[in-house]
Design a protein around this nucleic acid. Structure first.
Lengths: 223, 223
DNA sequence: GTGTGTGAAACCTTTCACAGCA
DNA sequence: TGCTGTGAAAGGTTTCACACAC
């Protein structure tokens, strides 16, 4: 046996980041009624090389047919299985401020099988009320509610100062993963997975690119 | 001369991603009154190795002192210069929905020198009104307003279907960079820089990690 | 001809280990 | 002793090029 077909083995880090992109594109293609797609087409849509696409997809099986390409539906199913999004995931939003509300209203989550089944905040003016149709619980109820609702993922959308403490609580309550929007490096027990989404950082990355381009251009002109 | 001190030359891709992290930590340290910091301390706070920190910082100059560490304030200034965040940047938010509003209310942007000086939407029920104290312009006014307000960056927070078209318009209006929140691979002229922030994708990355951990654990138990 | 799967090469990134200075 | 700066080694990722199948 050469390569596994399930999602069990080793999928290189860099590949996983692109798997979500392939998945999106495959869903688009499926909705458009395409039966197959070539590595070239897939790559063109996502600005990747065809070789890259083939190498990536070869990591978890041999799905392609020579001279034809990849069958869209089976490939989509395989990618979903590898990513683990072939089932529903139960999540909680912690922090009912601007960002928390935006997350609650984000259609992309529901569409992709994420169920937001709890909302927490510690602001007395929100607790007990409903935000976008969902009751807001106080932070102290986290353990209780996370267990009752079988919450697996926590989306942390609280101010930086509060982030570490709610992360610790969420981890203690038993969530398996944290999507952290606060600009803080969280310290949690090793069993809990963390992915950081720092909007300020992303904007700085963009600025760096723009800034660098401008600097290059200036050097070409002046030098 | 061995290495440049400005931000001109080549800073490896991977390093840039961490520069923002260093910057955040340095600001924290500065506020706490620390005069110097060692690569070990910096690394411990951000979960990086000390060697990694030293290699990264060595890319744009020799800021450290042997036996002592790095002086916080000068290093912070240098990192800001390399990233290009040592000046204000003018940005526009396109899309005044949930996410757009969250971006308008995000304190991190103002704090870090980003000025949101225009908001656009094409929903007649919002256009002309004020959202978080800022007037909302119709999409058709984009060129005019972007030029008048000297907008450099566009934050795209519209639904996926609309993203490509507003990106094209924003590029034509003359923005130098786009922070794209829509789950779409934008095609824009090569001179315009794009950074993608796909919330669904990030959540999938988290799910992959959790899923993989669970699978490993199951194999260790069963196998 | 079209297009996959895959070794080999090229490239990039991280870790190691240590000389050298305060 | 404490800590930086840096070559060399190790590890990972991307590109290339082509055998092979439809």
């Amino acid at each position: 046996m050469a390569k596994e077909t399930g999602g069990g083995g080793e999928t290189p880090r860099a590949v996983v980041g692109r798997l979500s992109l392939y998945l999106r594109q495959l869903e688009l293609l499926e909705r458009a009624g395409a039966a197959t797609v070539s590595s070239r087409q897939l790559g063109a849509a996502l600005e990747l090389s065809d070789a890259q696409v083939r190498k990536d997809l070869a990591n978890f099986g041999q799905f392609g047919f020579r001279g034809i390409g990849y069958p869209v539906t089976p490939l989509r199913a395989a990618v979903r299985a590898v990513l683990g999004v072939d089932r529903k995931w139960r999540a909680a939003v912690i922090g009912a401020g601007n960002l928390g509300r935006a997350l609650l209203g984000y259609r992309g989550f529901q569409e992709r099988g994420f169920e937001i089944c709890a909302v927490f905040d510690n602001d007395a003016s929100v607790v007990g009320k409903k935000v976008r149709g969902r009751e807001v619980w106080p932070m102290e109820k986290m353990r209780e509610v996370v267990r009752r609702e079988r919450v697996e993922l926590a989306l942390i959308a609280v101010p930086a100062e509060a982030a570490q403490s709610v992360a610790t609580e969420a981890a203690a309550a038993g969530v398996a993963g944290i999507l952290n929007f606060a600009p803080v490096t969280l310290k949690v027990e090793e069993a809990v997975n963390v992915v950081n989404v720092d909007l300020g950082l992303q904007l700085e990355q963009l600025v760096f690119q723009v800034h660098q381009r401008a600097t290059e251009a200036r050097q070409n002109t002046a030098g």
